[in-house]
Protein backbone atom coordinates (compact mmCIF):
# COMPACT_ATOMS: atom_id res chain seq x y z
CA UNK A 1 0.00 0.00 0.00
CA UNK A 2 2.74 2.37 1.04
CA UNK A 3 4.48 2.06 -2.34
CA UNK A 4 1.44 3.04 -4.34
CA UNK A 5 1.72 6.84 -4.52
CA UNK A 6 5.43 6.50 -5.32
CA UNK A 7 4.65 4.03 -8.11
CA UNK A 8 2.12 6.49 -9.45
CA UNK A 9 4.67 9.27 -9.56
CA UNK A 10 7.26 7.13 -11.33
CA UNK A 11 4.65 6.05 -13.88
CA UNK A 12 3.92 9.65 -14.60
CA UNK A 13 7.60 10.64 -14.65
CA UNK A 14 8.58 9.01 -17.98
CA UNK A 15 5.27 10.02 -19.50
CA UNK A 16 5.89 13.67 -18.81
CA UNK A 17 9.47 13.33 -20.08
CA UNK A 18 8.18 11.74 -23.29
CA UNK A 19 5.71 14.56 -23.63
CA UNK A 20 8.49 17.10 -23.45
CA UNK A 21 10.73 15.34 -25.95
CA UNK A 22 7.80 14.98 -28.32
CA UNK A 23 7.04 18.65 -28.25
CA UNK A 24 10.67 19.54 -28.75
CA UNK A 25 10.56 17.64 -32.07
CA UNK A 26 8.11 20.21 -33.37
CA UNK A 27 10.64 22.94 -33.00
CA UNK A 28 10.82 26.02 -30.93
CA UNK A 29 8.64 28.13 -33.20
CA UNK A 30 5.60 25.90 -32.56
CA UNK A 31 5.91 25.37 -28.80
CA UNK A 32 6.41 28.40 -26.64
CA UNK A 33 7.85 27.98 -23.12
CA UNK A 34 4.47 29.03 -21.77
CA UNK A 35 2.79 26.11 -23.50
CA UNK A 36 5.43 23.74 -22.17
CA UNK A 37 4.79 25.07 -18.70
CA UNK A 38 1.05 24.60 -19.17
CA UNK A 39 1.61 21.01 -20.29
CA UNK A 40 3.85 20.36 -17.31
CA UNK A 41 1.26 21.86 -14.99
CA UNK A 42 -1.40 19.62 -16.51
CA UNK A 43 0.71 16.52 -15.83
CA UNK A 44 1.45 17.62 -12.29
CA UNK A 45 -2.23 18.29 -11.71
CA UNK A 46 -3.32 14.85 -12.84
CA UNK A 47 -0.61 13.33 -10.69
CA UNK A 48 -1.92 14.90 -7.49
CA UNK A 49 -5.58 14.83 -8.58
CA UNK A 50 -5.76 18.35 -7.19
CA UNK A 51 -9.27 19.26 -8.27
CA UNK A 52 -10.02 19.98 -4.63
CA UNK A 53 -10.81 23.58 -3.67
CA UNK A 54 -8.12 23.43 -1.00
CA UNK A 55 -4.95 21.34 -1.14
CA UNK A 56 -5.69 19.54 2.11
CA UNK A 57 -2.73 17.49 3.27
CA UNK A 58 -3.73 14.21 4.88
CA UNK A 59 -0.18 13.37 5.81
CA UNK A 60 0.31 16.65 7.71
CA UNK A 61 -2.75 15.91 9.83
CA UNK A 62 -2.19 12.19 10.37
CA UNK A 63 1.57 11.81 10.48
CA UNK A 64 2.53 15.16 11.97
CA UNK A 65 -0.50 16.24 13.99
CA UNK A 66 -1.21 12.63 15.05
CA UNK A 67 -4.90 12.81 14.24
CA UNK A 68 -7.11 9.80 13.54
CA UNK A 69 -9.15 9.28 10.35
CA UNK A 70 -12.30 9.27 12.43
CA UNK A 71 -11.51 12.64 14.00
CA UNK A 72 -12.81 14.22 10.80
CA UNK A 73 -14.61 11.36 9.03
CA UNK A 74 -16.78 10.88 12.09
CA UNK A 75 -19.35 8.52 10.62
CA UNK A 76 -16.83 5.90 9.52
CA UNK A 77 -17.33 3.75 12.59
CA UNK A 78 -20.92 4.50 13.48
CA UNK A 79 -22.90 5.53 10.42
CA UNK A 80 -23.56 4.63 6.79
CA UNK A 81 -21.21 7.17 5.30
CA UNK A 82 -17.92 8.36 6.74
CA UNK A 83 -18.77 11.95 5.92
CA UNK A 84 -16.72 15.11 5.68
CA UNK A 85 -16.26 17.58 8.52
CA UNK A 86 -17.95 20.94 8.55
CA UNK A 87 -15.70 23.96 8.14
CA UNK A 88 -16.46 24.70 11.79
CA UNK A 89 -14.41 21.67 12.75
CA UNK A 90 -11.49 22.83 10.58
CA UNK A 91 -11.64 26.25 12.17
CA UNK A 92 -11.66 24.89 15.71
CA UNK A 93 -7.92 24.46 15.21
CA UNK A 94 -7.12 26.68 12.28
CA UNK A 95 -8.36 29.86 13.92
CA UNK A 96 -5.18 29.53 15.96
CA UNK A 97 -2.89 27.01 14.26
CA UNK A 98 -0.89 27.53 11.06
CA UNK A 99 -2.97 30.52 10.10
CA UNK A 100 -0.32 31.85 7.72
CA UNK A 101 -0.11 28.78 5.45
CA UNK A 102 -1.55 29.56 1.99
CA UNK A 103 -4.06 26.69 2.07
CA UNK A 104 -5.22 27.69 5.55
CA UNK A 105 -5.63 31.26 4.33
CA UNK A 106 -7.90 29.91 1.58
CA UNK A 107 -9.79 27.95 4.21
CA UNK A 108 -10.36 31.06 6.30
CA UNK A 109 -11.61 32.85 3.19
CA UNK A 110 -14.41 30.27 2.98
CA UNK A 111 -14.94 30.72 6.71
CA UNK A 112 -15.24 34.49 6.43
CA UNK A 113 -17.75 34.15 3.61
CA UNK A 114 -19.68 31.67 5.84
CA UNK A 115 -19.40 28.93 3.24
CA UNK A 116 -18.59 25.23 3.48
CA UNK A 117 -15.64 24.00 1.47
CA UNK A 118 -17.00 22.33 -1.68
CA UNK A 119 -14.86 19.20 -1.44
CA UNK A 120 -14.85 16.84 -4.41
CA UNK A 121 -15.77 13.27 -3.64
CA UNK A 122 -13.06 10.69 -4.33
CA UNK A 123 -14.79 7.43 -3.47
CA UNK A 124 -18.34 6.27 -3.91
CA UNK A 125 -20.54 4.13 -6.11
CA UNK A 126 -22.41 5.29 -9.17
CA UNK A 127 -26.17 5.50 -8.70
CA UNK A 128 -26.55 3.03 -11.57
CA UNK A 129 -24.58 0.46 -9.59
CA UNK A 130 -27.53 0.13 -7.18
CA UNK A 131 -25.09 -0.56 -4.36
CA UNK A 132 -25.89 0.28 -0.77
CA UNK A 133 -22.65 0.53 1.22
CA UNK A 134 -22.57 0.92 4.99
CA UNK A 135 -19.37 1.95 6.76
CA UNK A 136 -20.37 1.01 10.31
CA UNK A 137 -20.51 -2.81 9.95
CA UNK A 138 -17.13 -2.79 8.21
CA UNK A 139 -15.63 -0.79 11.04
CA UNK A 140 -17.18 -3.24 13.52
CA UNK A 141 -15.50 -6.06 11.59
CA UNK A 142 -12.25 -4.16 12.18
CA UNK A 143 -11.45 -3.63 8.52
CA UNK A 144 -8.72 -1.00 8.43
CA UNK A 145 -9.51 2.19 6.53
CA UNK A 146 -6.42 1.59 4.38
CA UNK A 147 -7.81 -1.69 3.07
CA UNK A 148 -10.32 0.15 0.92
CA UNK A 149 -8.79 3.63 0.77
CA UNK A 150 -5.07 2.99 0.47
CA UNK A 151 -2.38 4.59 2.59
CA UNK A 152 -4.08 7.95 2.93
CA UNK A 153 -1.80 8.77 5.86
CA UNK A 154 1.09 9.34 3.46
CA UNK A 155 -0.96 11.24 0.87
CA UNK A 156 -1.29 14.95 0.61
CA UNK A 157 -4.53 15.48 -1.31
CA UNK A 158 -6.38 12.15 -1.25
CA UNK A 159 -6.23 10.21 -4.50
CA UNK A 160 -8.24 7.16 -5.44
CA UNK A 161 -5.61 4.57 -4.65
CA UNK A 162 -7.91 1.56 -4.59
CA UNK A 163 -10.49 0.78 -7.22
CA UNK A 164 -13.67 -0.68 -5.77
CA UNK A 165 -15.17 -3.39 -7.93
CA UNK A 166 -17.66 -6.09 -7.09
CA UNK A 167 -14.76 -8.54 -7.46
CA UNK A 168 -12.75 -6.84 -4.73
CA UNK A 169 -15.76 -6.61 -2.41
CA UNK A 170 -16.74 -10.24 -2.91
CA UNK A 171 -13.18 -11.48 -2.51
CA UNK A 172 -12.83 -9.78 0.87
CA UNK A 173 -16.29 -10.94 1.94
CA UNK A 174 -15.42 -14.54 1.10
CA UNK A 175 -12.01 -14.41 2.76
CA UNK A 176 -13.65 -13.14 5.95
CA UNK A 177 -16.66 -15.47 5.57
CA UNK A 178 -19.02 -12.53 5.38
CA UNK A 179 -22.19 -12.84 3.39
CA UNK A 180 -22.00 -13.21 -0.39
CA UNK A 181 -25.74 -12.87 -0.88
CA UNK A 182 -26.45 -10.37 -3.68
CA UNK A 183 -29.09 -8.76 -1.47
CA UNK A 184 -26.42 -7.82 1.08
CA UNK A 185 -25.46 -4.84 -1.09
CA UNK A 186 -27.86 -4.62 -4.02
CA UNK A 187 -31.27 -3.41 -2.96
Amino acid sequence: MKGKPAARASRLGPASAAGLSCTSLWGEFLVSPAMLLALLLLVVQTASAAEQPIGFSHTAHIEKARMQCTDCHEGATSRDSAGLPSIRKCMLCHQFIATDLPEVVRLSEYWERKREVPWERIYGFAKTAAVQFRHAPHARAEIACSQCHGDVASMTVAVKAVTHTMGSCIQCHRENSATDDCLACHY
Binding site: S78, K127, T128, A130, V131, Q132, R134, A136, P137, R140, L183, A184, H186, Y187
Partner: peptide
Protein backbone atom coordinates in the same frame (compact mmCIF):
# COMPACT_ATOMS: atom_id res chain seq x y z
CA UNK B 1 -31.67 3.55 1.39
CA UNK B 2 -33.45 2.20 -1.67
CA UNK B 3 -31.92 2.23 -5.16
CA UNK B 4 -33.74 3.94 -7.99
CA UNK B 5 -34.54 1.32 -10.59
CA UNK B 6 -33.66 2.31 -14.14
CA UNK B 7 -35.76 1.58 -17.19
CA UNK B 8 -35.48 -1.91 -18.66
CA UNK B 9 -35.60 -3.90 -15.42
CA UNK B 10 -38.31 -5.63 -13.44
CA UNK B 11 -39.07 -4.53 -9.89
CA UNK B 12 -41.34 -5.73 -7.11
CA UNK B 13 -41.93 -5.80 -3.38
CA UNK B 14 -38.79 -6.71 -1.44
CA UNK B 15 -40.45 -7.21 1.98
CA UNK B 16 -38.59 -3.94 2.65
CA UNK B 17 -35.23 -5.69 2.49
CA UNK B 18 -33.51 -2.41 3.31
CA UNK B 19 -35.43 -2.18 6.59
CA UNK B 20 -34.51 -5.77 7.42
CA UNK B 21 -30.88 -4.86 6.76
CA UNK B 22 -31.15 -1.70 8.85
CA UNK B 23 -32.71 -3.56 11.77
CA UNK B 24 -29.93 -6.15 11.64
CA UNK B 25 -27.21 -3.48 11.60
CA UNK B 26 -28.86 -1.62 14.48
CA UNK B 27 -29.09 -4.81 16.51
CA UNK B 28 -25.47 -5.56 15.66
CA UNK B 29 -24.35 -2.10 16.74
Amino acid sequence: DVSIRPSGVVEKCTFCAHKIKRAKLDADA
